[in-house]
């Protein structure tokens, strides 16, 4: 297990990263979308983002940052809500697994779209 300060350092860095990549993500769905906002959420427009390697990489990075930040945040809240070594171990393991599942599932979606396939 990493030191708490290392976990928190990553938490702060991922928070900043989410701010930047989140802004980029929303911009890509609005005024940066090809053809402007009205058609930004149409299937072909969104699909074109996923097939672009740079946008796909940005989405993957955004997903990684979110998976860590969200589930480490939940871990912190749950550790403050209740105490005990059994509880701590259960919370740490559950949050780690949940983050991994969300990250892998999201990655699968991004890769599927990137390769041109539709689920």
């Amino acid at each position: 297990m990493m030191r708490e300060s290392t976990l928190m350092w990553i938490q702060y860095i991922t928070g900043l990263g989410i701010l930047v990549l989140g802004a980029l993500h929303f911009a890509s769905l609005t005024f940066l979308a090809p053809g402007g906002y009205p058609g930004a959420l149409e299937y072909t427009t969104v699909f074109s983002r996923y097939t672009d390697p740079l946008w796909a990489a940005a989405l993957e990075a955004f997903l990684a940052l979110l998976s860590y930040h969200v589930f480490n945040g939940f871990r912190i809240m749950l550790l403050e809500l209740n105490q005990g070594s059994g509880w701590s171990k259960a919370v740490n393991a559950t949050m780690f697994l949940a983050a991994l599942v969300v990250f892998l599932y999201g990655t699968r979606t991004i890769i599927t779209f990137y390769l041109g396939g539709v689920v």
């Binding site: 030191r3 708490e4 300060s5 928190m8 912190i76």
Partner: peptide
Amino acid sequence: VDSPHGVWR
């Protein structure tokens, strides 16, 4: 202090 119930809480 650098523990799960230390300074970071």
